[in-house]
Design a protein around this nucleic acid. Sequence first.
DNA 1: GTCTATACAAAGATAGAC
DNA 2: GTCTATCTTTGTATAGAC
Lengths: 206, 206
Amino acid sequence: MTKSADKNGKTRIQREKRKQILEAALDVFSQFGYRGSTIDQIAKAAGLSKPNLLYYFPSKDAIHAELLSGLMDSWLDPMRALNADGDPKEEILSYVRRKLQMSRDFPRESRLFANEIIQGAPRILPAIEGELRDLVAEKSAIIQGWINTGRIAPLDPQHLLFSIWSLTQHYADFEVQVRAIMPSEERVYPRAEEHLETLFTRMLSV
Amino acid sequence: MTKSADKNGKTRIQREKRKQILEAALDVFSQFGYRGSTIDQIAKAAGLSKPNLLYYFPSKDAIHAELLSGLMDSWLDPMRALNADGDPKEEILSYVRRKLQMSRDFPRESRLFANEIIQGAPRILPAIEGELRDLVAEKSAIIQGWINTGRIAPLDPQHLLFSIWSLTQHYADFEVQVRAIMPSEERVYPRAEEHLETLFTRMLSV
DNA sequence: GTCTATACAAAGATAGAC
DNA sequence: GTCTATCTTTGTATAGAC
């Protein structure tokens, strides 16, 4: 036994190369979108030749699909953590903070999704209509419960979730614009966090 | 005088054809992004052949550039209307309403910009660093003035503007996602307006 | 596993007939 | 002004040597 392949038939080397390619592909796809990106660009970014890259992935589409499906899960984690038994205001504020951290720490992932959704979500509509939709229904119910018992001020729960997404993702998706307007401001995120904390505190107070 | 060309050397027919092409191009570019769109697609959408379209515009790039520059101006109108002498809370709420109307009435334009900015604003960075930046500086100063005189609750004015943009544009840019989550809800915009009105009223109250 | 060479298709743009 | 035909470039993907 010289190759010690795992159950998927992949050697360690193969798994590492694939990871390295996905990392480069994330760089490229998140900036130029699917159609705007070329295999050559990705290969160059990964330090490989084009045919060599295609030895590890069957096609450009396969790379993109794997990126998207791999991300969908972790992308929803901050929302999954919203806990019905916690303190309502603190739960929502924590969610906002986690989501803002995602924008700060994973801006490329955010832009990959944004590109996909703006262009009509051709590749992830099923996941949106499934997983995401169910999760939103579940968490909306929790929020509505908090409103009904008077623990937070009344608000449309679904639109509240949209507000959280848009306010936080904006800093990743429109980063170029934010930076163009605040070029001297290196502390964008600490300021943003403060701002959103103020905003949601006022929004939720009965 | 048979052709009655205007000062730009364009006949009426030419202006109308160009308009018709731009309309089709907006459809296509806003959905697929610059690279994802083809001249063929645009030509077909405009009811023309590819070479015929290229009789009216020198290149794909020229069409895209004209769309963007033509839109930049009207896109900033809602912000320009923010009036230092009006009632602060009403001024900001009106701005939010105007911006939400833009998302409702011109979602393609919103997505055209979003595509451009997410991808690093390769073609409109100068306008963002110029016009937009200046306008933000001017309006931030007005908002700061309102805060200083205690007419609205304290907030970071620049981040407040970002919040207004993100909350309103979300309904156009992520329309597919919104619709996937609220498929039965045909009254998205009236609800959104109510929600944002509530949100900003609480946010600005001293 | 990695490379060079190449097949093949799509897309931007032009030539020239009508 | 509009069309058919064509040129050229770019980009996806494969063949086959090493």
